[in-house]
């Protein structure tokens, strides 16, 4: 306790001892500045300030344009968002999109892990995987949609096909790179304890490759989300609720631009939420283990 008192006196400077009135004010100001600086160190605070500035700029630009049909204001968009969530089908549309997304994502990740597990054991399969990845990675998933619709019709199956394509290749590449970068010593340690096959992959390779796997999951998630929203612009998933892309497309047709904006904001918000989730996972794993800074 006494130590902190001494350091406070030091902060305020020599002037305090002669009780100069201006010194107290200066010290208060210094403390205020220090508190602000500390607050600025918090990532969430910095992000909130950036978002608030963007919202203000949007509001001003929209007011200046004064054309709600083409460019609704921030406040109009937010009220459309709340209205949409409470009384209209924005919420079920979001749930529909996320449900389809999770199905496709999990399916593709499982396929990729299976493929890569075989590829690290069998050189020929690795050759196949690398060739396929090189071929399909540059091919935008949405370009497969016409073919998917032709083969599988207008429905979830088509969406799943394009999403598996969007996720499988980038994630497989990240996983393969991650597994290959596992330090030789850690591989030998695992083999030393008699680990083989699946237990070797699960107990050594996957945790050791987690930085690459997580970044692959992040990239794959972004690809999947973009692809899904784009695909939903073409057709709705189910009869009742067509997903977020469909919500945006439908409201554009009715020139309800504030709802189009509300749909886009929802897409962004869900993206941010997932980003935060990934960050939490990273903090509890790879950052905690010193594998990533």
């Amino acid at each position: 306790m006494s130590e902190s008192l001494v350091s406070d006196g030091d902060l305020a400077g020599d002037d305090v001892r002669v009780t100069h009135p201006a010194a107290g004010v200066a010290s208060l100001r210094a403390r205020g500045a220090a508190a602000l600086a500390a607050l600025w160190q918090v990532t969430l605070v910095r992000r909130a300030v950036v978002l608030a500035a963007l919202a203000a700029a949007w509001q001003l630009a929209a007011l200046w344009q004064n054309n709600p049909l083409l460019f609704p204001t921030f406040t109009d968009t937010i009220s459309a968002l709340i209205e949409g969530l409470r009384h209209e089908d924005l919420f079920p549309a979001s749930v529909a999109s996320i449900t389809v997304l999770l199905k496709g994502y999990v399916l593709a990740i499982a396929l990729a892990l299976g493929f890569v597990s075989v590829a690290i054991a069998v050189p020929f399969v690795k050759e196949v995987l690398l060739t396929l990845t090189a071929m399909f990675n540059p091919l935008p998933a949405i370009a497969l949609l016409p073919l998917a619709m032709l083969w599988l019709g207008l429905g979830e199956a088509s969406l799943l096909l394009v999403m598996v394509h969007a996720v499988l290749w980038p994630f497989a590449l990240a996983a393969l790179t991650g597994f290959e970068q596992v330090p030789e010593t850690q591989r030998l340690v695992g083999r030393n304890y008699g680990l083989r096959g699946l237990s070797y992959i699960a107990l050594i390779l996957i945790p050791a490759a987690l930085p690459s796997l997580l970044s692959g999951l992040k990239i794959a998630w972004a690809f999947a989300w973009r692809t899904l929203i784009a695909a939903e612009l073409v057709f709705g998933v189910s009869s009742r609720s067509g997903g977020l892309g469909w919500y945006i497309y439908r409201n554009r047709n009715e020139l309800l631009t504030d709802k189009v904006f509300a749909g886009l904001v929802t897409v962004i918000l869900i993206g941010l939420l997932v980003e935060v989730l990934f960050r939490l996972v990273e903090q509890r794993t790879v950052r905690r283990w010193g594998l990533q800074r």
């Binding site: 030998l188 340690v189 008699g194």
Partner: peptide
């Protein structure tokens, strides 16, 4: 083949599993 009846201590510091 390798087995836990012969445990190896390596030179490399990364032999401890970081996770």
């Amino acid at each position: 083949g390798p087995g836990p009846d012969r445990i190896v201590v390596f030179q490399e510091f990364d032999q401890l599993l970081p996770w």
